[in-house]
Nucleic acid binder design. Structure first.
Lengths: 64, 64
DNA sequence: GAAAAATGTAAAATATAGTTGACATAATGC
DNA sequence: GCATTATGTCAACTATATTTTACATTTTTC
């Protein structure tokens, strides 16, 4: 499913998908795919995203 | 580096690497590699491990 | 101390994460 | 309206997560 927590955390920092991608060292399409869902990123990338957005894994990637 | 938090959480549940692997639907070697470190598992696997061990992502996979 | 269970590790194969390039469309600003 | 920026998406490619098989070593249990 869509990762809206990520999308809103990125918006809160006023970063485009491309901005975030550059900070994390991945392609824009990868960020797009993660926000879209139906994707299974690696933990290292998740951590990079969290640090870029001042969030933790639980805040952006945990779901009950 | 080694993931000792995972190793001890697994020990606390008295599960072998093979037990945990079966619960998570992966091979024993994959669990071994994650505990050993130098490995980059997918977020879905990390979540499966956390749920099997009653932990959260931050507790097992976050590091400053 | 021997047997069994648990773990480390390695090589070859497969599945899939992530890249690159490209094009279309939606949203924003002038 | 037009130009620019942001996003969605697709196809083909590359990198790497994960499997399978196999064997060695360590740890546990009797």
């Amino acid at each position: 499913m869509k990762n809206l927590k990520l999308k809103s955390a990125r918006a809160a920092k006023d970063l485009s998908q491309e901005d975030l991608a550059k900070i994390c060292g991945v392609s824009r399409q990868t960020i797009s795919a993660i926000e879209k869902g139906d994707y299974n990123p690696t933990i290292n990338l998740c951590i990079a995203i969290c640090k870029a957005l001042d969030k933790t894994l639980d805040e952006l990637f945990w779901e009950e």
